[in-house]
Design a protein around this nucleic acid. Sequence first.
DNA 1: CAGTTAAATGCACGTATGTTCAAGCCCCCC
DNA 2: GGGGGGCTTGAACATACGTGCATTTAACTG
Lengths: 334, 334
Amino acid sequence: MTVDSPNLENLRQSHTLSLQAVQVARLYYEQGLTTNDIALELKLSRPKVSRLLSHARKSGLVEIRIHDPEGEAMGLEARLQARYPFLQAQVVSVPLGSSESVWIERTATAAANLLTTLLRPGFRVGLAWGNTMSAVSRVLVPKAVADVIFVQLNGSANAADFVSGFVTETILRFARNFSAKAQMFPVPTFFDDPVTKQAMWRERSVRHVLELQEHADILMYSVGSHTAHTPSHVYTAGYLSPSDLSVLSDEGTVGDIATVFFRADGSHQGLSLNARASGPDLGLMQRVKESICVVSGLGKAAALHAALQGQLMHRLIVDEVTAQAVLELDLEGV
Amino acid sequence: MTVDSPNLENLRQSHTLSLQAVQVARLYYEQGLTTNDIALELKLSRPKVSRLLSHARKSGLVEIRIHDPEGEAMGLEARLQARYPFLQAQVVSVPLGSSESVWIERTATAAANLLTTLLRPGFRVGLAWGNTMSAVSRVLVPKAVADVIFVQLNGSANAADFVSGFVTETILRFARNFSAKAQMFPVPTFFDDPVTKQAMWRERSVRHVLELQEHADILMYSVGSHTAHTPSHVYTAGYLSPSDLSVLSDEGTVGDIATVFFRADGSHQGLSLNARASGPDLGLMQRVKESICVVSGLGKAAALHAALQGQLMHRLIVDEVTAQAVLELDLEGV
DNA sequence: CAGTTAAATGCACGTATGTTCAAGCCCCCC
DNA sequence: GGGGGGCTTGAACATACGTGCATTTAACTG
């Protein structure tokens, strides 16, 4: 690919665009001028100033972060944290009578924001994949952070991803957004034979990925559930045979994180399918410094409740309605 | 000091005020809703939402940062953290060609915001004193936090303070700002005789203060330097005799924290004056959970660089220009 | 060089936002 | 219990902001 002069020209222009945008943003946010004043000062039209401002916000030139006094929380947050003392919860409110797709959108936005806040140079971030993570990837606001690696937590090497690029695209969006590297995990989501998995796990290339996962600074994932309104990919994409699914029921699984299953009490040891799953041991979620669980949708309430019993996260981002449902499950259970 | 009911009431209200403000700010800045939508969703009047938003901005609950591709602030932050992995740095950008007093003002504002964010009910906060801390005290935004104690880190019982009230006033401003208590430290900044210090350190009243310092949840301080443009109080207020000052030079000290001196490599053991100083052992800065060092001004670069070698802080708030200077010192040193 | 397309510009409009002001409320003190 | 001061509240106003649209400008193509 050669760089011809028009492209160079575009590049220069996009630079001056950003420069102008920064200049305008400074005058607007730091000096507190109105768009009109700025237009006069820089001899631009007022609409142009307005457009530069939106550009600055959308492209991450201005970053707006909200410092939550993490001590006292309101309502649902407080109740969640009282019930699960290890947990740092953020409950996102949703409009009355809105659809679950709106909930996901809002929850994803909150999650994207939290990740941007927590991310520091040199961090390794483990990512699961699925509908929720995909939603998060689509609402990220660009910001360059040095030496970050995003590493895929569980395999996706199978037809479903290769046709749609669903998984690959999700993780690449994260990486691109932060000018970071992406480490894919090119193994099957589930192995047919646990022995093959063990063999693969001895391979250098795989061990490299596992190493990155083990030393991750942040993990981000959702919980999966077969009862979700929009069922998790893992249940719909044909990864599992009908007999697998019946085994899941028999063994009392209520959900999964990164395609590793757990029971209603949050335990995951001894579940037969996990020996064939490509996701990490769920103890990892406790070992790492930050593990962010993003959950939205009433159908996921039971799975989330189970994950909470198992302390499978440090932080939780959940929509109001689902949070309510989880707390009610708590009352029933006791 | 008794706590009467109106104070308690104010406390509760200021809490819910901030909590609501955060909630509103989230919906406004993260989710991009209009003030009207927010008013409907939270059942508030629209003007109230608007007021909550301004409150959130003024009180530093929302922080708006501008990532200037030209301006160094972001890059400097990354470089500082790469060079000093233990450090969490915040570099505040300053307008081109502005004076050092503007740098201090901005840096102090960032420090005040950080303190507000980190402060939780029940915390003990150790405070040094000096020009920088005074600047921070003047830009605090009021917020009531329950059961907080501010404790003075090093003595100030001498003529200079009693006339001007400089030190007392600084610490009282912190305390008043958060509806907290202030624990003064009524001993000389420097003892003439180390034996007197040791004797005083056995006194119950002094031990109480030392106890509070040792179990502080947060420390905040700057670094002092005799080369600073606005020299630190300790060097100008006549605390030290000319012979003391020459001893400082001979022993290779380059700066101080809370009137405890350290060398260019960050070490502080064995410096003769420290045996007479009222400030805490600098190991305390590492032992506590949070220690915030606030530095602004080119003259302090050398002292800050030394303090960084000794890992004498967990967090650093520094202006762009000084940060630049510190990193350059690094290059020279190698 | 003219034709076509795409992007950028500024006007004008409708909406969003901040602020003023009068009324209401609570607390305190007389 | 009856005012009075301080603070909070929401209606109404004035200003600021974002965006569709028609027009110009620029760029690429045949």
